[in-house]
């Protein structure tokens, strides 16, 4: 009986969440049709869906999606693989951390988009500079949060582990990193959202394929429906990533929500 009630409540909640979106889409559909919005600038929602359908049928969308995903995933992975180990090393050593802190704060605050011309000069306009921009945008949140999380290690936990016979390696992997994870994870979430951001920016400024390119190109040749269709895809991509991150979070941090296993 209780489970039924819970399920019905969940369904009701999903409906409630969808209503504002549906209202928004209805407005988007009607306003251009009624002339409230300029049909040439902002075609109705259904036109965007038709353009999307065409791109799926012609397989065009998959080519661009593939390129975008490749750049985003590669840039993010590089940032992960470098940012977290390096952040751990720096966070662990107080002297190094204090020494580097002003420099890192400076670098971390430089907007990656501002650095884009620099990337182009150094790496050219090929893939390297695009992936480089994504990498740079993803690196800083994870890197800084890891440094912070590791530097806030709970000394009592480390003492307990060491006294019980844990090696330094065990302390690092079984105590320090799990302890730092609640601080590292928000950094990872931010990095993931930055990856899409940087990806779009990079692709708009110089690419021949990808969702960002598609948006920019569609706008330039004035195929508005296609442009909005591409924007919708990017939004869905972001939603998908967020959903994955939240699911992982519920699993990994079950202990924070006071759940039983």
């Amino acid at each position: 009986m209780e489970k039924e009630l819970k399920e019905r409540k969940q369904v009701a909640r999903i409906f409630r969440n969808l209503i504002p979106i549906i209202i928004f889409l209805v407005i988007w559909e009607l306003c251009p049709r009624l002339g409230i919005l300029n049909k040439n600038m902002i075609p109705p929602f259904s036109d965007a869906i038709v353009a999307l359908k065409d791109m799926i049928v012609s397989l065009e969308i998959f080519r661009h999606l593939g390129w975008s995903l490749y750049r985003a995933v590669l840039g993010f992975s590089l940032a992960l693989v470098i940012g977290i180990p390096l952040g751990t090393a720096i966070g662990w050593n107080e002297k190094i951390r204090e020494f580097l802190s002003p420099l890192l704060t400076l670098f971390g605050n430089v907007s990656p988009i501002a650095l884009f011309p620099f990337f182009i000069i150094v790496f050219g306009i090929g893939e390297v500079s695009k992936i480089g921009i994504v990498f740079w945008g993803c690196l800083w949140p994870m890197f800084m949060n890891t440094i912070s999380g590791v530097s806030h290690s709970d000394k009592a936990l480390i003492k307990a582990a060491r006294t019980m016979g844990a090696s330094k390696k065990t302390v690092l992997f079984s105590v320090v990193i799990p302890n730092a994870l609640p601080e590292i994870y928000p950094g990872i979430k931010l990095s993931v959202s930055n990856s899409i951001l940087m990806l779009c920016a990079g692709e708009m400024l110089g690419a021949t394929a990808g969702l960002g390119y598609l948006i920019s190109y569609s706008q330039q040749i004035f195929e508005m429906s296609k442009m909005y269709a591409s924007i919708i895809i990017i939004a869905l991509l972001g939603l998908a990533f967020t959903a994955i991150l939240n699911t992982v979070e519920k699993r990994v941090f079950a202990w924070k929500f006071n759940n039983e296993k």
């Binding site: 709970d154 009592a156 307990a160 202990w255």
Partner: peptide
């Protein structure tokens, strides 16, 4: 050695 401390020092995760 084993140790029991005032603050319990249990691993919350």
């Amino acid at each position: 050695l084993g140790i029991v401390q005032q603050g319990y020092a249990l691993f919350p995760w």
